[in-house]
Amino acid sequence: MAVAWKRKDLLDLESLSAEEIELILETTGSFKEISQRPIKKVPTLRGQTVVLFFFEPSTRTRTSFELAAKRMSADIVNIQTSASSLTKGETLKDTARNIEAMKVNIIIMRHSCSGAPHMLAGSVSPSIINAGDGSHEHPTQGLLDIFTIKEHKKKIEGLNVSIIGDIAHSRVARSNIWGLTKLGAKVTVCGPATLMPPEVEKLGVKVTYDIKEAIEGADVINMLRIQLERQGQNLFPSIRDYSMAFGLDAGKMKMAKKDVLIMHPGPVNRGVEITPEVADGPYSVILEQVTNGIAVRMAVLYLLSGVKERVE
């Protein structure tokens, strides 16, 4: 392997090098094999404590991390709270210092504010894994998306990957953009102009408001979840209008390449950003993403734990 893992935390993909990303992907491959065994447990993290520190409700990501940690024999503590409950007195840093004082090894953190994991990483000693911060990044989601693409396409470099939906508020989009462009993919982002973050083209992606352009020639189409709460903020006129222009259905799929992969970070709003027949259709790898999510998170836990022996 070209590089060794040196970081204390996994906060984002923006700051990782292509080599570091490749290292995680390679490590993921060996952990995926464990998930396919009849007894899916290895002692790699025995004696280590992993805290799931979630400030935002999340079933999927939390469950995925929890399973990853359990399959590696870590002790797990769940702390679920909301960002607003902290404003009553104890600050985020206070809470984190308390957790630190309990001598834990890794804190997996989700927070509705961008940068919250970065703030903690600088002030407490346990490793921090960002499990999604505001509209900023969701690095393990980006990694599992890239791993899934690579499994199918054998490479990332030169692939055309289109990300469609609410780019502005999407941490999944940002992590995918960084990871994919670092590995040499050509990324197109597509969505309504109102949901396009300012100057996003400067991240080295192509921007289009025409879904046809995003579908044609794409090797991978990653459909983002549209937050239904955005309705009424005048970010788009209505769900119906959004679906017509940016929803992926069988009709639009006719423009796609024959070997396209359809991805979605879940949970899917069926009939809004993607129709059930496409989400469940032959090109969809949505469930594989879920399976790979556990392997990616095992790899990340392993690398951050600093444990040398991977698998017994």
Partner: peptide, 9 residues
Amino acid sequence: GLLSTRMGL
């Protein structure tokens, strides 16, 4: 601008 996009703020 670009930086707010990168930082997700």
